[in-house]
């Protein structure tokens, strides 16, 4: 769909490309969510995160989120880009960009997209520490 941009890539995510995709003369605001790899989990030092995906299904689920956001919120365009592979502290695993005539719809759609992505999109991260590694969310 021309109003959505969905990517899962081993390349470095491109914030400017997400911004440029959603930018439009009719829009008074753009909301951006940029996920970043932080250096600590429960006070333990993180050395890197390794993202693995079920790529074809991840793309489908991300497209569903984008399509639903276009229906449910008064927005013009939405980009959802996610990285896969190894990322270091400070790197960007996810970017969501949303444009709309007025700011509220952009904020709301952006929040909906990241919250839903974290619940439904088949992507898994393994946290690597100095002394081991763990799949996030996996343990009951």
């Amino acid at each position: 769909m021309e109003n959505t941009s969905i990517h899962v890539t081993t390349e470095k995510l491109n914030l400017q490309a997400c911004y440029d995709f959603v930018q439009d003369a009719s829009c008074g605001g753009i909301a951006l969510f940029v996920g970043t790899v932080r250096n600590l989990t429960k006070s333990k030092e993180v050395t890197l995160l390794d993202f693995s995906t079920y790529k074809p299904m991840a793309i489908k689920e991300m497209q569903k989120i984008a399509d639903k956001a276009l229906v449910d919120f008064d927005i013009l365009k939405i980009a959802i880009h996610h990285a896969e592979g190894e990322l270091q502290v400070g790197h960007i695993p996810v970017i969501i960009a949303v444009s709309s005539a007025h700011r509220k719809a952009a904020f709301d759609a952006c929040q909906y997209a990241i919250d839903t992505l974290k619940e439904t999109v088949p992507i898994w991260k393994k946290e690597h520490f100095v002394d081991g590694e763990v799949w996030v969310n996996a343990h009951p």
Partner: peptide, 10 residues
């Protein structure tokens, strides 16, 4: 069939 353990993207 794909087994989907709890996801943790983002």
């Amino acid at each position: 069939i794909a087994i989907i353990p709890p996801v943790s993207g983002g």
